[in-house]
C-alpha cells in the first residue's frame, strides 16, 4: 500500500515523513508515470501559482484529474487551492476536484500567519493544532462536500467522497490523526 506525495515544490518532505511515521510506503511524484500503483496522493503546501504552472508543464494536471476518478487525494493549503473549484481573488485554472470556492492569502501576509486551536470532526470531534501560514479561506462549500473542521466560524477542513482538504498544515505538527484519517479514507474507497 503505497501513497504518493506531489513533489514539484513545497513542504512535501514533511508529508512524506508523516506517512512514514504511520508505516506507509511513499513515492515522490514529479511526473505522470509516478502515479502508477499508488493508493492515493497528497498535495502539499507551497505556492499554488507555481504548482499549476509546473503541473501543466509536465502533464500532471490532466493526469491527476484522471487519477482522482478512482483514488483519494489530500491537499493542504496550496494543495487545497489547487484542488478547489474556484479561486475568487486570483485568475488561475484549478483542478476542480472538490466543490469549494477559496480566497487566497485570506488572512493577509506572513505577519498575519498564526497558530491556533481548530475543532476537527474525524471519527469524533476533537481539537487540533492549526498552523496557518499565509492561509486561504474556504468561503463556499457546494454539493457533496462536508465540513470537517472549524476555526472560529470558518470552515478550515472539508471532504467529498474522494478529496480531503485543509487550509492549515497538520504536517507541521507531530499529530498524525489527520494523515491516519486520510489513509482510512483510502481503505474505505476500495
Amino acid at each position: 500500500m503505497k501513497f504518493g506525495i506531489l513533489a514539484l515544490q513545497g513542504d512535501f518532505a514533511l508529508h512524506q515523513k508523516a506517512l512514514q511515521r504511520v508505516g506507509i510506503e511513499t513515492q515522490l511524484v514529479r511526473k505522470p508515470e509516478h502515479l502508477t500503483g499508488l493508493m492515493g496522493l497528497i498535495m502539499p503546501g507551497g505556492e499554488s501559482t507555481t504548482f499549476v504552472k509546473l503541473l501543466k508543464e509536465i502533464g500532471l494536471f490532466d493526469a491527476i484529474r484522471e487519477f482522482a476518478k478512482n483514488h483519494v487525494i489530500f491537499g493542504t493549503c496550496a494543495g487545497l487551492i489547487t484542488l478547489a473549484r474556484k479561486i475568487v481573488n486570483y485568475d488561475l485554472e484549478t483542478l476542480n476536484l472538490i466543490d469549494i470556492v477559496v480566497e487566497r492569502n485570506a488572512y493577509g501576509r506572513q505577519i498575519d500567519s498564526f497558530v491556533d486551536t481548530v475543532r476537527v470532526s474525524i471519527n469524533h470531534t476533537d481539537t487540533f493544532e492549526g498552523v496557518f501560514i499565509r492561509a486561504p479561506k474556504i468561503i463556499e462549500i457546494g454539493q457533496g462536500v462536508t465540513a470537517l473542521g472549524y476555526h472560529q466560524n470558518d470552515v478550515v477542513m472539508a471532504e467529498n467522497d474522494r478529496i480531503l482538504v485543509a487550509t492549515f498544515h497538520p504536517e507541521l505538527t507531530d499529530d498524525l490523526r489527520i494523515h491516519e484519517y486520510f489513509i482510512q479514507k483510502a481503505r474505505e474507497l476500495k
Binding site: 515544490q9 507551497g46 496550496a78
Partner: peptide, 13 residues
C-alpha cells in the same frame, strides 16, 4: 514554527 513553516513552503522553488 510559523517562520520556519514559511521557509518549508518555499522548498523546491
Amino acid at each position: 514554527k510559523l517562520k520556519v513553516g514559511l521557509a518549508e513552503m518555499l522548498k523546491g522553488g
